[in-house]
Computed example of a mutant assay.
Amino acid sequence: MSDWKPKRFWTASAVVQAEDGYTVELDGRRVKTPAKAALILPTQAMADAVAAEWDAQEKEVDPTLMPFTRSANAAIDKVRHQHAEVADMLADYGDSDLLCYRATHPQTLQQRQADQWDPALDWAAETLAARLVPVVGVLHQPQSAEALSTLRGRVHEFNDFQLAAFHDLVSLSGSLVLGFAAAMDWRAADEIWDISRLDEAWQTEQWGHDDEAHAVAEIKKAAFLHAKRFIEISI
């Protein structure tokens, strides 16, 4: 029974205007979330993306092939009901941001981290008005309370759909700063992803390619790029 998938029961999907946004209909019947909430989407672009996923289903409905639908469901069924908690959890990444913890050795890795991570911290200081300070080693050192408060306020400004996407940008990269950098187009999303994987790339150079680790990384990269696209079509 665990492998059971619902059968396709509709002929065509359609995007229609609804109260406070857009929704998707399947042969005139409105799609609902898994929690049976109305699937009201903030933009037509998002509704178009969701409708396209429903149209692409063939004999059976496969949720793993419907990332926009799943992200929208998460925003409505989960984030909407605990927006403040999710925002606080993500804001907490700022006090232990990936970009702030630098290698103790070798010098070539230290230099690579400085070359790739310092510009992101400089961007955050200028654009977000929050300066985070890098330290050497892995022992936690608190960041400026003022900077963290500023970043927390910005996270809370996201709407439910943006926050659902931002969750993945931050958790997958391990960096609040890089999450903002992706959301705000500091650089191309795939470049930001590579910046977040600097340490892993270094390890690969030293010890060789690991097929299993690479496959996992590619899945995470696809999810990161999807989150970037989802946040783009949320406004």
Rank of each mutant, 00 (worst) to 15 (best):
W4Y: 15
K7T: 10
K7E: 09
F9D: 14
S13K: 09
G21A: 12
T23G: 12
E25G: 08
L26A: 13
R29K: 15
A37Y: 08
P42A: 03
V50P: 00
E58S: 07
K59V: 01
V61Y: 01
D62G: 00
T64K: 09
R70C: 10
R70I: 14
V79W: 06
R80F: 14
H81K: 13
E85I: 04
V86W: 15
D92G: 12
Y93V: 00
A114N: 03
D115A: 05
W117F: 05
D122W: 08
A124F: 02
L128I: 04
R131C: 15
L132D: 01
V136S: 05
Q141W: 03
G153Q: 15
R154F: 05
E157Y: 04
N159H: 05
L163K: 01
H167Q: 10
D168P: 00
A183E: 02
D185S: 09
A189M: 02
W193T: 00
D194Q: 13
S196E: 15
R197A: 06
L198I: 07
W202T: 12
W207T: 14
G208W: 01
H214T: 03
H214I: 00
A215N: 06
A223R: 06
A223T: 14
F224K: 00
L225D: 09
L225S: 03
L225R: 02
A227P: 01
F230Y: 10
